[in-house]
C-alpha cells in the first residue's frame, strides 16, 4: 500500500494525542494525577492539538475536503465513520475533563470525566486501527495484531509525551518516564510479534484463483492492460525491496522503541532529564513514523496479484 504522508501523520499524531489523553484521563480516574492542575489541563490541550493536527492531516488525503462532514453519517458500518464520530466526541469530553481538573483539580467529576476521556481516546484509536484491521484484502492489516498494536503504540507514544510534559512542567520525569520505558518494551515486543506474524503468513490468494483457474495452476502475467502506472497500482501496488524493509525495520525498532526506552530510563537518573525525555519523544516520533511507513509499505493488496505482483 502506498504510504501517503497524510495517513502516516494522521495515525502517528493521533497516537501521540490520544495516547497522552488516555494517560491523563486514566491517571485522573485513578487519582494518580501529579500535583498541579496545569499538567492535566496543558496536557489535554496538547493532546487535542496533536489529535487535531492528525485529523486535519487526514482530511488532506480527501478528494473532497468540503464534504468531510459526511463521514460522520455511516457509523453503523464504517470504522472510518466511527473514527470520525469518536474523535469528535472526544473533544467535549476532553474539554470537560480539562475544565473539571481546572476547577477543582480532583474529585469525583474529574475521576469520572478522566475515565471517560481515556476511554474516548482509546476508542478513537481503536476505531482507527479497525479501519485497517477490517480490510480483508490486506493480510498485513487484517489480523489480530493490528488493533492491539495501534493501542499499544498510542499508549507508548502518549507515555513518552507525558514524560516530556511532566519533566518540562514539573522538572522531573517522575513515573511517566518509567511507564514510557515499560510501554516501549511492550511496543518493541508487539512490533516484533507483528513482523514475525506477517512474515510467516501465506498469501491470501494466488493468481490462479484471482483469474478463476483451478487451484495450483501455474499462471504468469503476459500483458497488463496498460503500460503506465494507474491508480490501482500507485495506491495498492506499492512494493518495497526486501533489503530496504530489513533496514527500516531495524531503524524502527532501534529508534522508535529501543532509544526511547533507554532515554526514558536515563531521564530518571540523568541530570538533563528534559533533554532525555525530549530526545525520547523525537526518537519515538521518528521511529513510529518509520514503523507506520512500513506498516503501509509492507502491506500488500490482493488486487496487485492481477499485475503479477507478489502479495
Amino acid at each position: 500500500m502506498r504510504p501517503a504522508a497524510s495517513v502516516l501523520l494522521l495515525t502517528t499524531l493521533t497516537g501521540f494525542g490520544y495516547g497522552l489523553l488516555a494517560w491523563l484521563g486514566a491517571c485522573a480516574a485513578l487519582g494518580l494525577l501529579p500535583a498541579g492542575r496545569w499538567l492535566a489541563v496543558g496536557g489535554t490541550a496538547l493532546a487535542l492539538l496533536f489529535a487535531t493536527f492528525g485529523l486535519v492531516a487526514s482530511t488532506l488525503h480527501l478528494g473532497r475536503k468540503e464534504r468531510a462532514w459526511r463521514a460522520f453519517t455511516q457509523w453503523r458500518s464504517s470504522w472510518l465513520s466511527r473514527e470520525g464520530v469518536a474523535s469528535v466526541l472526544t473533544y467535549p469530553i476532553a474539554i470537560a475533563f480539562a475544565a473539571a481538573v481546572y476547577r477543582d483539580g480532583g474529585g469525583i467529576a474529574v475521576r469520572l470525566l478522566g475515565a471517560l476521556a481515556a476511554a474516548a481516546a482509546l476508542v478513537t484509536v481503536f476505531c482507527t486501527s479497525m479501519i485497517y484491521a477490517s480490510l480483508k484484502p490486506i493480510r498485513q492489516w487484517h489480523n489480530a495484531h493490528t488493533a492491539p498494536d495501534y493501542l499499544i503504540y498510542a499508549v507508548f507514544s502518549g507515555a513518552v509525551l507525558l514524560a516530556l510534559l511532566e519533566t518540562a512542567m514539573l522538572g522531573t520525569p517522575g513515573a511517566a518516564a518509567r511507564a514510557a520505558a515499560l510501554a516501549a518494551a511492550v511496543a518493541w515486543a508487539a512490533k516484533r510479534a507483528y513482523w514475525r506474524h506477517i512474515d510467516a503468513q501465506s498469501p491470501l490468494a494466488t493468481l490462479a484463483s484471482a483469474i478463476g483457474l483451478p487451484k495450483g495452476t501455474e499462471v504468469k502475467p503476459l500483458d497488463a492492460p496498460h503500460f503506465t502506472e494507474n491508480y490501482v497500482l500507485r495506491e495498492m501496488g506499492f512494493t518495497i525491496a526486501r533489503r530496504h524493509a530489513v533496514k527500516l525495520r531495524r531503524i524502527a525498532l532501534l529508534v522508535g522503541f529501543a532509544a526511547p526506552l533507554v532515554l526514558s530510563l536515563l531521564a530518571s537518573f540523568s541530570r538533563l532529564p528534559l533533554a532525555a525525555t525530549a530526545a525520547a519523544l523525537v526518537c519515538a516520533a521518528v521511529g513510529l513514523l518509520t514503523e507506520r511507513w512500513l506498516f503501509f509499505a509492507e502491506a500488500t493488496h490482493v488486487s496487485a496479484l492481477y499485475y503479477g505482483r507478489r502479495i
Partner: peptide
C-alpha cells in the same frame, strides 16, 4: 456524496475502483 477517502478501493480485492 463521495469525499474521496479511497477506503472503498482498499476494501476491494479486485482493484475495480479507480479514483
Amino acid at each position: 456524496k463521495c469525499i474521496g477517502c479511497k477506503l472503498c478501493s482498499w476494501a476491494c480485492p479486485y482493484g475495480a475502483r479507480e479514483f
